Amino acid sequence: MGVTLMGKQEMARGGAASSPEIGSRPPLCATEAPTDALRWFWLAQLLHDLPIALRFTLATCPVLFTFAVQQLFLPEAADYPFIYFVPAVLFSSLFLARGAGLWTVVLSAALIAIFLLPSPARMDLLSPRDLIALLLFVGTGWATVIVCEALHDALFGLASANSRLSEANRRIAASEEEKELLLDEVTHRFKNDLANLTAILRLQANDTSDQIARAELLAASDRVHVLDRVHRRLSMKEKVGIVEVSAFLSELCEDLRAALIGSRPIELTNDIERSYLPLTQAITIGLVTNELITNALKHAFPDGRPGTITVRLKKEGGTFCLSTADNGNGERSAVPSTGLGQRLVRSMAQLLRGRYEMIGTPQGTTCTLSFPAN
């Protein structure tokens, strides 16, 4: 078990250690195959990470391509050449950014002014119409570049934040897995220790000639055994910190019936409302239930008399009420008990921030523990 745990822990640590550092590039880089939904962003990041010289070269290519197409195939469009360069400006601004869009605007304006407008190359000889059109193209292109690069930076900032969040989630998942492994190991060892402690107490009881000491050792062994049963029940049913107590207490009553009642003419019934409790409270409730049932079996039915013990758990408003009622010897509650079992129950009531009382009548005894729901 220990070897297996260590191997799993090493794999968990290795998985965390091999992950990229927080703050690194988003994981959608050239080494990862993009999905259809993220292909455009993968291309943008691939171009974004290129060296500056290569990015400006790529920004120049669509401008020169547009210029060549316009010269070769659309010479009659000389009156409105600006529109053909807009896609190049958008491409450079969105995918290359960091100055590439502005370079595209400047290069496009220069080619238009020098080669495409039907005016001489000198700016002071451009017609007012062409000059206004050229200035509008430059101004509009510059505004487009600013907006697109701002959008570009925002998208990459969001991608970087998502990358850091994903990395943090991966580390948390690895940490949770390691914690789960350690918790399983601790629980397993704890249950083994409880079983060993139960056996030691019983062996010591068998070797003791003093009947009072023998009875106390056996009672202590029974309490430890209940702890063991509680943890086994919880480990089989729950992997989280919240316990559904109806099935848990019903099965615990079955365990106690088999272990303590046997062939005695005593019926153990339960009326447990379906409810949920934190793990620590469920363990405490299990121990209290064991003490109350054990106490009733010891004292309520002397001389083999028959009877019934009923365990109830109800929730009224914001308060849980756990009770055991028997129809046995009610006189046993006339004098407050100072036994260890009653002291344990009262201590557990304090842990639950609740109130414990035992009421006896000629018809039997009712022990009630009320505590607030968290």
Results as ranks from 00 to 15, higher is better:
Leu126His: 15
Ala133Arg: 06
Arg129Tyr: 11
Asn169Lys: 10
Leu134Tyr: 00
Asp130Thr: 06
Glu167Ala: 04
Val147Trp: 09
Leu181Met: 12
Trp142Asp: 06
Leu126Cys: 07
Arg170Asp: 08
Ser160Val: 04
Asp130Leu: 08
Ser127Thr: 15
Leu165Pro: 02
Arg171Lys: 08
Leu182Glu: 11
Glu167Gly: 06
Val147Thr: 11
Val145Phe: 03
Thr140Asp: 07
Glu177Met: 10
His152Ser: 10
Ile146Val: 14
Leu151Arg: 03
Pro128Thr: 10
Leu135Asn: 10
Ala133Lys: 04
Ala161His: 12
Cys148Lys: 01
Ala133Met: 09
Asn162Val: 11
Glu180Lys: 14
Leu135His: 07
Ala143Phe: 10
Ala173Lys: 09
Ala159Phe: 06
Trp142Leu: 14
Phe137Leu: 00
Asp153Lys: 04
Thr144Gly: 11
Ala174Cys: 12
Ser160Trp: 04
Glu176Phe: 03
Leu151Ser: 04
Ala161Arg: 13
Ile146Ser: 02
Phe156Thr: 12
Gly139Val: 13
Arg164Asp: 15
Leu165Ser: 09
Glu167Val: 02
Arg129Thr: 13
Phe156Glu: 11
Leu126Thr: 12
Ser166Ala: 14
Leu182Thr: 12
Thr140Arg: 10
Ile172Thr: 08
Ala173Cys: 10
Leu181Gly: 03
Ala154Gln: 06
Asp153Arg: 09
Ala150Tyr: 09
Pro128His: 05
Asp130Ser: 15
Val145Ser: 03
Leu182Ala: 12
Ala133Thr: 02
Val147Pro: 00
Ile146Phe: 05
Ala174Asn: 11
Lys179Met: 10
Leu136Ile: 07
Asp130Asn: 15
Leu182Ser: 09
Phe156Cys: 05
Asp153Ile: 12
Gly157Tyr: 02
Leu131Asn: 10
Trp142Asn: 04
Leu136Tyr: 05
Val138Asn: 01
Thr144Pro: 00
Leu158Tyr: 12
Ala154Asn: 04
Ile172Glu: 06
Arg171Val: 13
Ser166Ile: 07
Ser175Asn: 08
Leu158Cys: 05
Glu176Trp: 04
Ala143Met: 15
Leu155Arg: 15
Ala161Val: 13
Glu176Pro: 05
Val147Ser: 00
Ala173Thr: 15
Ser166Gln: 13
Ser166Tyr: 06
Thr144Phe: 01
Ala143Val: 14
Gly157Cys: 04
Ser175Arg: 03
Ala154Pro: 01
Leu134Val: 05
Gly157Val: 02
Glu178Phe: 15
Ala174Trp: 15
Ile172Gly: 01
Leu126Gln: 12
Ala173Ser: 13
Phe137Pro: 01
Asn162Gly: 11
Asn169Trp: 01
Glu178Ser: 13
Ser163Pro: 01
Ala143Tyr: 01
Ser175Leu: 13
Ile132His: 06
Pro128Leu: 07
Lys179Ala: 14
Gly139Ile: 14
Ser166Asn: 08
Glu149Arg: 02
Thr144His: 00
Phe156Lys: 10
Glu178Tyr: 13
Arg171Asp: 10
Leu182Phe: 05
Cys148Phe: 11
Ser166Cys: 05
Ala168Asp: 02
Asn169Gly: 03
Ser127Ile: 14
Glu149Ile: 11
Leu155His: 14
Leu134Thr: 11
Asp153Phe: 09
Ile172Pro: 00
Ala174Thr: 11
His152Ala: 05
Glu176Gln: 12
Ala143Glu: 05
Glu176Cys: 10
Leu136Pro: 00
Val147Lys: 08
Lys179Thr: 14
Phe137Ala: 00
Arg170Trp: 14
Val138Gln: 02
Phe137Gly: 00
Val138His: 03
Leu135Ala: 13
Thr140Glu: 07
Ala154Ser: 07
Gly141Cys: 06
